[in-house]
């Protein structure tokens, strides 16, 4: 049964990918969709002899980059959440609760508004800074308690949000609205250019976490155990936190703040399949990707105008977060 579920989740993104491609306010029948893809790949079609340039444009330039970005960002947030939770040994941390998202958002906005360095790099620097501050503020004698890490994350997030507000006030007010919309987390500006801009960073982050994922298990036992088992805890912690930060900050830099994906997905998977990160990392990617693609599919089709996707994930994730806090509290505040 478990094996069946596992396989199901692993092929889920592929199914969602095609369903998402087929759904949208511009109607493209399924047979046309297949033909367009075939036409692009081989130059031949099966069902239709003629294809409209518009449906090709909608499918390949509008829908495809959006669906692909949704999958990649969802996967990135979930994988990053899984890695943070293992490294920090805390089921409540994820990019949003660590203050990372706000730091990355500030960095990205800063790069957009003022500095002329690439958005993703600036986002990464400030995301790293926020995680570092949250983590160090909550650590005492090398130990970090579950709740204090979340609390310091809240504080760091509010500091960066405040700095973002200052930035918003001081830049041209005409850009303000766009920035606010972007901050709420949205995929509607997805394009090939954005996808390509963020892809290298995502690939680096994914690769590191995927190859070293077994070491996450060792780190999740704690510094002392990890050390005795032959894994240098400081070195690998830094590696994983760096890679997870890269994934999440890259995601934020193109889609704004999409909260709590990295919390829900890993926890659901851990309940189903246990804490083994060799399984969790690929599964997190697949489920996180599917989750965000589904949410985006809903947000794309619900109303006649775009609704920021971050609103949905927050509504869905918040009750889950509360449930998790209660559950953690039963085990003591350690």
């Amino acid at each position: 049964m478990r094996e069946f579920f596992k396989k199901l989740i692993l092929i889920f993104p592929i199914v969602i990918f095609f369903v998402s491609l087929g759904v949208g306010s511009y109607s493209i029948p399924f047979d046309q969709m297949i033909d367009i893809i075939l036409y692009k790949l081989s130059g031949y079609t099966i069902f239709n002899e003629q294809l409209s340039a518009q449906s090709i444009n909608v499918l390949l330039n509008i829908r495809l980059p959006r669906v692909a970005l949704g999958l990649l960002v969802g996967g990135a947030l979930a994988v990053s959440g899984t890695a943070f939770q293992a490294v920090m040994r805390n089921p409540l941390v994820e990019p949003y609760t660590l203050g990372l998202s706000s730091g990355a958002a500030f960095g990205a906005a800063l790069a957009m508004a003022v500095v002329t360095i690439p958005v993703q790099i600036c986002a990464f620097v400030f995301a790293g800074l926020s995680v570092g501050i949250s983590y160090l503020a909550a650590s005492k004698h090398g130990e970090t308690s579950v709740i204090s890490l979340v609390l310091s994350g809240v504080v760091v997030a509010s500091v960066f949000t405040a700095m973002l507000s200052i930035l918003q006030i001081s830049i041209d007010p005409l850009q303000l609205q766009g920035l606010i919309y972007w901050l709420m987390g949205s995929l509607h500006t997805a394009s090939w250019a954005k996808l390509l801009a963020v892809l290298p960073y995502l690939i680096v982050g994914y690769t590191i976490i995927y190859f070293f994922r077994w070491k996450l298990n060792i780190l999740s036992l704690g510094e002392k155990d990890a050390g005795s088992l032959g894994v240098n805890p400081q070195k690998y912690k830094l590696l994983f936190i760096g890679a997870a930060t890269l994934l999440a900050s890259a995601a934020v830099s193109v889609t704004g703040i999409i909260s709590l994906v990295g919390l829900m997905i890993p926890h659901m998977l851990r309940m189903l399949f246990g804490p083994d990160n060799t399984k969790l990392i690929p599964l997190s990617f697949c489920l996180g990707a599917s989750y965000l693609a589904i949410v985006d599919m809903i947000s794309r089709n619900l109303l006649t105008y775009e609704i920021p996707i971050g609103i949905f994930t927050t509504f869905l994730g918040a009750p889950y977060f509360i449930f998790l806090i209660r559950k953690t509290r039963e085990g003591g505040w350690n």
Partner: peptide, 10 residues
């Protein structure tokens, strides 16, 4: 409002 690109195509 913020329009959906697909609607603009439509």
């Amino acid at each position: 409002f913020v329009a959906k690109m697909e609607d603009v195509v439509t």
